[in-house]
Design a protein around this nucleic acid. Structure first.
Lengths: 233, 233
DNA sequence: CAGTGGTCTAGACCACAGG
DNA sequence: CTGTGGTCTAGACCACTGG
């Protein structure tokens, strides 16, 4: 049996996966270094590096300088969620997108908001509430605070035909952010807007984005009952 | 002003980010090709490639052969969730991990399960229910089906001291999987086990993993009220 | 200190898709 | 057909870190 040759990084990756899978390399095991693998696979070290780096990014390998590469003892599944603009979420599924502005005003936020956004306690922010609809049915309720000290252009935008979700993502860059998902029981008002029963279990997404240390916007999006966020592993 | 030199792919990435950020390159714009950027930045094309490839992976650029590289018009935020073993989730936060097996038996599953797992309608599966605790408080309820036709070793494991969550992740590889997050109102039984009020809003994770086209396991994990899944952007 | 992964380089060929 | 990104190569130096 002749040794198969591995001509590209994906086939190298496949072979490494096969060995992990077949338990030739067991969790916790140290695997050969890049140079040796390159010789064995008959390719350049760069190619092996690319394959192993990719696997490490997926959590299947642990790599450390000098210490070498090990098969992850406790694999951590990395699930990548694509958080798209809500309009696209809906139209991509072939549904009709609808939008309704519920409220838009500049007010002094409650302490919880100004605290999280690190804005001054008395500093007013733009507060927008809007409803997204799919095929005329309530889909998600957007409850957003915008730091107009950082994004003054937002004051000139009427969010009556397109949502702040859309406008901000397309027009305001950010350097980093935090996102959290949780479940929340619908309050009476929320149930009313989302046309569901009070006390329904709702899927909630909280996002806070920053631009070079200054908060840009903080948003809570409440999805109507039945919403699922899915992805592949 | 002398042109700064970019000696590594991260600094190239930073510069590209800066240009996008400063709107020198606007959403939808075609940016210069790799070769030109390499000349401008005074580095090898490989280095530019690495930087742009990374940005494309993060959803900030759209790249196509022949068509070139464009700034994403509708940026899609990619949030990477690390789905760790529940025990580690808890101990990493400095809490005490506890575990309790509620039930373990081999039975014929309801059609919804055998359908999703693509097992024969009458084929029995191993069904395990277990509770994870953090500092002695209920944390998550694991409701799992295991395809013993694919993982016969599971029959020899007593899940009385460590969970199937842990055992499977450490011992059974998979090739791919699906994962979904949603919200669910607690049934009376679930509320009982999780020591919360009936009708509480619970965060739910459903995972189904496959190994070369055969289902390995299907699990539903219900988290006690207050649970948040967080990540950075 | 020395072995490992991390990266850069210059050049090359290839695959794809727009015109 | 041709320009673009995608990738491979061989060699080199560097940065980190375990022993």
């Amino acid at each position: 049996m002749t040794a198969p040759s591995f001509r590209n990084w994906q086939s190298v990756q496949d072979e490494v996966l096969r060995r992990i899978h077949a338990r030739e390399w067991k969790p916790g095991d140290l695997i050969p270094n890049e140079a040796d693998l390159a010789i064995e696979f008959g390719c350049a070290r760069t190619t092996v590096n690319r394959a192993l780096r990719s696997l490490a990014q997926n959590g299947l390998l642990d790599r450390k300088r000098r210490a070498g590469t090990r098969v992850a003892a406790q694999p951590v599944a990395k699930a990548t969620l694509d958080i798209a603009i809500i309009r696209n979420d809906i139209t991509d599924r072939g549904q009709k997108y609808g939008y309704q502005l519920l409220q838009s005003r500049t007010i002094v936020p409650p302490p919880a908001i100004s605290g999280a956004m690190k804005t001054g306690a008395g500093q007013p922010l733009l507060h927008v509430m809007a409803l997204h609809l799919a095929d005329d049915a309530p889909y998600a309720l957007e409850n957003r605070w915008i730091n107009t000290a950082v994004v003054p252009q937002a004051l000139d935008v009427k969010f009556d035909t397109s949502s702040p979700n859309e406008w901000l993502l397309q027009n305001v860059p950010y350097t980093n952010g935090e996102i959290a998902f949780s479940a929340k029981m619908a309050s009476r008002d929320e149930a009313d807007v989302l046309a569901c029963l009070s006390q329904s279990a709702l899927f909630k997404m909280d996002r806070l984005t920053w631009d070079n240390g200054q908060s840009v916007t903080k948003v809570q999006i409440l999805f109507a009952p039945g919403y699922q966020m899915r992805t592949e592993l």
